[in-house]
Deep mutational scan, measured.
Amino acid sequence: NITNLCPFDEVFNATRFASVYAWNRKRISNCVADYSVLYNLAPFFTFKCYGVSPTKLNDLCFTNVYADSFVIRGDEVRQIAPGQTGNIADYNYKLPDDFTGCVIAWNSNKLDSKVSGNYNYLYRLFRKSNLKPFERDISTEIYQAGNKPCNGVAGFNCYFPLRSYSFRPTYGVGHQPYRVVVLSFELLHAPATVCGPKKST
């Protein structure tokens, strides 16, 4: 009989979030998941669920729940959905087409922007091929755009693959930082360890 609440607040209220290319994953298990708490945590810009209804979450049980978190800019949030393409979905964080879970995003301009520009958040701009779903690539190998090998040196047709967002508070919403948490629900042929409040007794 599990009584402890799932530590969603640790994920959502973390002081620092990860850069999207090096997104963070927390496995959540053996706890009571009260998803209604999430609705009250922040004024969400996005709370979209796929393959599951957000209002039914509190009635369900899962084997595992994974919470992935990272920062992107406002106009990239739409890429965090099944079947999307674009720089983020292709080279940084890719959801599977049959994704079961929820994408939660909110504006973090007050936390993640600086007047002089916050350069701490990076994204991958160049990659030889698209990522597979939930693949994480943290390599910093020089990207070869031409025929000549780069031998690890940046220059003509040889690019450092990561680029930094420079978040400034005066930017338009599309270029402001957004914190994203992706909850993916895993149903294996194994005992369910993460249940809503109704199912945990």
Rank of each mutant, 00 (worst) to 15 (best):
Q79P: 00
S116N: 13
D9P: 09
F17Q: 04
Y93C: 00
Q79I: 03
N130M: 12
V180W: 01
R25L: 02
R136W: 05
S108P: 00
T46D: 10
R124E: 00
Y178L: 07
A42S: 11
I2F: 14
F8M: 09
N40Y: 10
V65I: 15
Y171T: 02
D90T: 09
S53F: 09
V182Y: 01
V37F: 15
L95A: 02
S108C: 06
T140A: 12
S139E: 09
A190K: 13
Y39G: 13
I28W: 15
E135A: 08
A18H: 11
S36A: 11
L57Y: 08
S200E: 14
L111M: 13
P133T: 05
G172N: 00
T55R: 13
C31Q: 06
G117F: 03
V153W: 09
Y93S: 01
K128D: 11
G74I: 01
E135W: 05
N109M: 05
K26S: 09
T193S: 15
V180H: 03
V181D: 00
F167N: 00
G74K: 05
C158I: 01
A89H: 05
Y119H: 11
R168S: 01
V52E: 06
F99P: 01
N92K: 03
D75V: 05
Y39D: 11
G101H: 02
R78W: 07
D98H: 11
F62A: 11
T46Q: 14
F134R: 07
Y91V: 05
F126I: 04
K26I: 12
R136G: 03
V32M: 11
F8Y: 09
T193K: 12
K148Y: 12
N151W: 10
E141D: 14
C150D: 00
D68T: 04
A22W: 07
P191H: 13
Y143W: 04
S116V: 08
Y178V: 10
L188Q: 14
D59K: 12
W106P: 00
R168I: 02
V115D: 07
N109C: 05
T55K: 15
S200A: 13
G117H: 03
V71H: 01
L5F: 13
N30R: 09
I28M: 15
D59G: 11
T63M: 08
T15Y: 09
Y178E: 02
